[in-house]
Amino acid sequence: MKTYNVGVIGYGWVATAHIPAINASRQARVTAICSSRPQDDAVLSAKHGGSIKAYTDLDAMLADPEIHAVSICSYSNLHAGHAIKAAQAGKHLIIEKPLALSWEDCQRVAAAVEEAGVKVCVCFECRYSSQLLATRAVIDQGLLGELHYGEVDYYHGIGPWYGQFEWNAKRDGGGSALLTAGCHALDALLLCLGDDVRSVSSYSTRSKSPIFAPYEYDTTSVTILHFADGKVGKCAAVVDCIQPYYFHTQFCGSEGSMLDDKFHSQKLAADKSAWSRLSFKSLDSGDVSDHPYQLQFQAFFDALDAGRDMPLTDLKTALHTHRVIFAADESARTRRPVDL
């Protein structure tokens, strides 16, 4: 089993979740951190364990042949440029969502990755959550029959109480309600209903609360997906709500239905007037420290050992999710459906 030395680009909020998750894997460790704010080697090493070298020059960090992979935790509008530069340096990539703030930049990342032949993990880590793993298991076991409808909604008020609020509220920072955070819900919808989306219709709006006034884009959107086989999906992305975090899932099929942690199936000898309940940890927090990065990153390094693309959150899968997101944002902007 190979040991992978990982360099982290950006030393903000999300990096504080990536670093311990990487170090907790069986075969990887963070050995370098590049930040625009100068850091001290000894302080970083003492805080995160091991020996960590601090950089302010990204080119210098990427030139180190002892670094095998990088974790991109920089501002969203820098993800594409950092990913391309790291791929060109021959480093495997962990890219925090979103891949980029435009479809053109996503394609530039894909081209650089293909040319360099490196492997990629995109942080749609909710696919590795207990909630979505259990939901997929119920669907895959056929307990709901053939699905015809599904909805996954993201409710999380991202206000000034979050450190990233100042840059996230800008159009060239967060991008849209879907890009900044609702992408997790739309990605989960595609995970459960399939990826053959034929058309997208979306509308957006925003709260009148002064709390969310700094946002330069609409902070609530509702997107309807029409699939090639006739299925319909709905995704609400609401980052201006005033309520506890809520990651809502509901699916309806020919043999039953599922609602969050409850399901009802005709295939089971159960009370037809009652739900059956699953036991899992729900996605109930927007704090990155609660996200299942460790499971995702372990799968990534295991895939590197095997010389294959990682499961669930590889670049091809993430690109498709982004394509649907950008189509949804275009639909909301033009108030017209967008065909894929």
Rank of each mutant, 00 (worst) to 15 (best):
Q266K: 07
K2R: 10
L193D: 04
Q250W: 04
E166A: 15
A80Y: 04
G163E: 15
V238I: 07
K272S: 08
M258E: 03
W161I: 13
K231P: 01
D140S: 08
F251S: 02
V288N: 11
L179A: 11
K231T: 00
H82Q: 12
E114L: 09
P210M: 11
L101Y: 07
K272F: 12
I158V: 06
S285F: 08
M310T: 12
Y245C: 06
A137P: 00
A80S: 12
D314H: 01
G81W: 04
S221F: 05
C106E: 10
L193P: 02
C123A: 11
G49I: 08
A46N: 04
R108N: 14
A46V: 04
N77H: 11
G307I: 06
S257E: 13
C252R: 03
R171N: 14
L283M: 15
A169R: 07
V30Y: 15
S102F: 03
D59R: 07
P210F: 10
R323P: 03
V6E: 02
D195Q: 13
V222D: 13
H79P: 03
R198I: 08
G90M: 13
D314L: 02
E216P: 01
L193E: 01
D195E: 15
A89R: 05
R136T: 00
I67T: 05
K262Y: 13
A318F: 12
G49C: 09
Q266D: 08
A134D: 01
D59L: 09
K208P: 00
I242Q: 13
I9F: 15
Y155I: 01
I52H: 06
Y215L: 14
R136V: 03
L186R: 03
L144F: 04
A188Q: 02
K316N: 07
V122A: 10
G233H: 03
A274C: 11
